[in-house]
């Protein structure tokens, strides 16, 4: 086992903490995140409310803990969607080549011509602004990137002699794809999926920030940040803490992604 890198340790710790907080938030929060309390409106961080309260007197920390669940769940579901369909399309396209590949890739490139969040915005208009809408919209928006990466990996693997060796052994194409090609695509898929988890969390909060994400009163980091925007003068913490959560999560994912890339990238492996 290679020794763990600094990046990997820090990133892994942050992401593990995120999962733990999200898990705790399912069973317990310091206060009821939905409970309104007009006596405690816009209270600054204090011993009672560690991170203060919002304009309806709801506890910010509790809402952030529940918001973490939304982020993790939406990020996870989006990544699963994109990994499943992207891998399927990439494998078919890369292995089929010829006209099938040409048509699939023409569509793929057209979808890639929409910046991810823009495509998601358009799709949200169709699916409606709720968490399932976001998952489908982001999932569809990210699938083309995954498909392209997988296709690229398949195309380069096809040139490798062990794929030809499998053919010479008389193995069927399906067997070759499942036994030899797919397992060797796992490294790039993992690296990209890690980044996508970050993109999804960021996009979800951006969409919620724009008012097109998970509708209030259900808390997400993005809609908390948006709700805090008008109170930026009186209650800066309302915008500060949700943003900090997003930033830390992204930092964790980026560090973890770097560590994974260093470990899994075959070009780097040759140098060790």
């Amino acid at each position: 086992m290679k020794k763990l890198t600094f990046n990997g340790v820090i990133g892994g710790t942050i992401i593990t903490l995120l999962f733990i907080v999200a898990a705790i938030g399912m069973f317990w929060t310091p206060f009821d995140p939905m409970k309104l309390s007009f006596s405690a409106r816009l209270a600054a961080p204090s011993g009672a409310h560690l991170l203060g309260t919002d304009e309806f007197g709801r506890d910010v920390l509790s809402r952030l803990m529940v918001g973490a669940q939304a982020s993790v769940w939406i990020g996870f579901a989006t990544v699963c969607f994109a990994v499943f369909f992207g891998t399927l399309i990439g494998l078919i396209s890369g292995y089929a080549r010829g006209w099938a590949d040409g048509i699939i890739m023409a569509f793929n490139n057209a979808l890639l011509a929409f910046p991810g969040i823009l495509l998601a915005l358009g799709l949200l208009a169709v699916f409606g602004a709720n968490q399932y809408g976001i998952i489908f919209a982001l999932g569809i928006a990210y699938t083309p990137s995954m498909a392209r990466i997988v296709r690229g990996a398949v195309l380069s693997l096809r040139e490798r002699e062990f794929i030809e060796a499998s053919k010479v052994m008389g193995n069927s194409e399906i067997y070759t794809i499942l036994r030899h090609i797919l397992p060797n695509c796992l490294a790039p898929i993992t690296v990209l999926a890690t980044s996508m988890f970050g993109w999804a969390i960021l996009s979800e909060s951006a969409l919620s920030f724009l008012g097109l994400g998970v509708p209030p009163p259900a808390p997400t980091w993005g809609n908390m940040l948006a709700a805090g925007r008008p109170f930026i003068e009186q209650a800066a913490w309302l915008g500060f803490f949700p943003g900090l959560c997003i930033a830390l999560t992204l930092l964790g994912i980026n560090l973890l992604g770097d560590a994974l890339r260093d470990k899994l990238d075959p070009r780097m492996r040759g140098l060790k």
């Binding site: 490798r160 002699e161 030809e164 060796a165 499998s166 010479v168 008389g170 036994r179 397992p183």
Partner: peptide, 23 residues
């Protein structure tokens, strides 16, 4: 009869770094 041929004809490739599935 490809099956018969495949059972009786095998190949050794040039690059031992590329001809074995690394996994």
């Amino acid at each position: 009869d490809w099956f018969h041929y495949r059972m009786n004809c095998q190949m050794v490739f040039q690059d031992p770094y590329s001809s074995l599935d690394p996994r």
